[in-house]
Amino acid sequence: MTVELLTKPSRVPQWLRILWANKKSRVGVVLLSVFVLTAVFAPVLAPYDPESTDFAAALPASGDHWLGTTQQGQDVFSQLIHGARTSLLVGLVAGVFSTIIALLIGMTAGYLRGWVDEFLSGLTNLALVIPVLPLMITLAAYAPVRGVWLIIFVISVTGWAYGAKIKRAQIITLRTRDYVTAAKLAGDGPMRIVFREIMPNMTSLVVVGFMGAATAAIGAEAGLEFLGLGDPTTISWGTMLYWADNGGALLTGQWPWLIAPGLALTMLVTAMTLINFGVDALSNPALREE
């Protein structure tokens, strides 16, 4: 209990310090910042309007169009810059939503145990074994409207299970600690105990879970849009790949149109994975770099 109180005020700076001390996660933080800045300042950074079709179609890369133009005469580089917005938005929102679902289900199951746990764990295991992408495709195919928000919804309701399982396992080890018993004796309700007493001790686990969910969401969004299940008029890396593949970018030799969105996607996902190395070190001191 005293240890908890003592470490609490310095938690945030320490959190950042450990993240920065780890070489891998430092690279990740820098890389992710570049993406975030690109997304925020996309209208300033992009040389052209990404939706403008004023240019000649299927131009090769040149000084005017760094990555060439699409089959409809849009500037690929401008689309690439604006695409960062969609990926980060989906990653952030779907990551937050599935983390919330995972927290609610995992924490409730792990804290209450008994038949509630049996039921919620069964639900989690069920969601874990059902193949996610076919489920996503089926859900998206029936939806009357298509777009980024549908994709965010589909990813959130299908992607929480793994996080819930991990959080349940963690809370089971924490629920019998002394400070929990103390809080119970002090008359705190279960909601308060779970979310105010126990959850702060699982911060890194929640952050890792969020990063994992966000990374998976970014990949899933690109995959679904590549399959044409999003709104094809949205500017995103997934739709860019969709149009590049359908527009015959391979046949016309417009390789930058095909390579660039995938490379951007890979770099973003790598940045998140690298940061997770550092977050892992947060929860497991054995992994910290000297």
Binding site: G223, L251, W255, T266, M272
Partner: peptide, 21 residues
Amino acid sequence: QFVGSLPFFWIALLLLYLLAF
């Protein structure tokens, strides 16, 4: 860690471009 985080379908597109086309 790096390869595992690569988007599945992008690798497929790359292989298709490089080795088939």
